[in-house]
Design a binder for these strands. Structure first.
Lengths: 251, 251
DNA sequence: ATCATTCTGTGCGATATACGAACAAATGTC
DNA sequence: GACATTTGTTCGTATATCGCACAGAATGAT
């Protein structure tokens, strides 16, 4: 790509939108400039553009995103075959298992939820399509990382902030890499309260008809209801069934 | 705002992202140019910028959005108090009612889902935060339109494509306006299969502590399970309870 | 109240981008 | 296979944007 094929004003604007993720509230021009590292004048122009287009509200002092901004993410969810195809299978899976089922893909060091069927809320955090979790300590993340070559997986781990979420969180790179190997061999990953105390989950890869891993699906359950050791026997058959059905549908 | 406070390259880029919503698939440069009405050269630069930043994939022929684009919508969902505050109440509501509960706000002629707690999927369409429905024929839409002045509501109806989704869909402007009046008086709206055959829903406004309507919440159920006439007596108390709890939390 | 600090808005020169047209490559049609 | 059409890419130039520097307003501390 040539230098002139890049619209930096667009790239800067997207950076400004993402800056809102950092905060729980509204942003002033100066705050947005600090978060993005862009010039205040530039950020101001981007924010005023967002406001003009209805993607942001401006009260003369602070900017806040409006729900119109959801159109952007929704452009992906409705246009991409993956979320659309997976959702109904996830619904069935969740119904049969009596627990929440989710699907995600890898984006950098994180997994991104692309679909979810929740039976009841078991986690303290609210997961919706677009939500992100660190890949290294999530069951779907383990499955997705295990699908990469060891070199690629190590490269992602190197870029990851391996901070423990609970006392159970595995943070040792070698331990994680050998865990990936085990996951690859057995075809599933189980997480025992590494993300949140009281929560276990089990994930399998979603493969297309050529055997490429394109996503991961999981079932999460409270440890009181299904301890980690019980998860494979309870939920693996259902997950495998869904995995098989998806392989026939994808591509 | 001055002319120069508008970054047109940014605005054009956002338009290009939204163009993906129209399609179920990938977009070529020429297709995106047609959908957006922009020059091919301009669209090409925007798309290459998206690809360069990882928001899109490019195989040399077609562009497709990547899950990274979900960061943009998620910036709203995680930064805005409304979705974050409503979600737990919605979970409880859905649990108690044994049916799906959702929250939405108005964006132009459409309602936008900002949170959802689904018990089981009853609609053929897949609703997630960011999903849109025409306001005039959705229960939450009726409630949100009823909260406006009649002039504003009429202005939105005038901009709406009032095409019927089912034989039940009300499309007459006068009938709708008087329906808004009834909704305003009784404090809730019921929809009897106007959006999809077999589906009924009931909605109430979510008000902040100053009595301003800031969103709407609803419960949807299959008509076989709860006919429209039964919805108020079954679900209105639960909705009112949630409405009351939210009024204390908002602002 | 005063001063220091931070913030927003603006003007300007340097630089980057958009547009339309022209060209090249691919695709479709007969 | 030749022709017509559509699509992707490049180019020159008019125009718009960027980052900086500065002024005035707002905020906070003493």
């Amino acid at each position: 790509m040539r230098e002139t094929d890049f619209v930096s004003g667009f790239a800067r604007g997207l950076k400004v939108i993402e800056a809102f993720e950092e905060t729980r509230q509204r942003l002033s021009i100066a705050e947005a400039a600090k978060l993005t590292g862009l010039d205040r004048a530039t950020v101001r122009r981007s924010l005023l553009t967002l406001a003009e287009l209805g993607y942001a509200d401006y009260d003369g002092k602070f900017f806040a995103l409006t729900p119109k901004i959801l159109r952007l993410g929704h452009a992906y969810l409705s246009a991409t075959p993956l979320p659309v195809l997976i959702q109904p299978h996830l619904d069935q899976l969740s119904e049969k298992a009596g627990q929440s089922a989710s699907a995600s893909v890898l984006d950098g060091t994180e997994i991104v939820y692309i679909a979810r069927a929740s039976q009841r809320r078991v986690m303290s955090i609210n997961l919706t399509p677009g939500s992100r979790l660190p890949a290294f300590c999530a069951s779907m993340g383990r499955v997705l990382l295990a699908a990469l070559t060891e070199t690629e997986a190590r490269s992602i781990l190197a870029r990851t902030d391996l901070k423990p979420n609970t006392p159970n969180t595995k943070t040792d790179v070698e331990e994680l890499v050998s865990e990936f190997r085990r996951v690859r061999e057995q075809g599933y990953a189980v997480i025992d309260q590494e993300l949140e105390i009281g929560l276990c989950s089990i994930a399998v890869p979603v493969e297309n008809d050529r055997g490429q891993t394109v996503a991961a699906i999981n079932i999460g359950a409270p440890v009181a209801h299904a301890p980690a050791a019980d998860m494979p026997v309870r939920y693996l058959p259902l997950l495998k069934e869904t995995q098989k059905a998806l392989r026939l549908v994808l591509r």
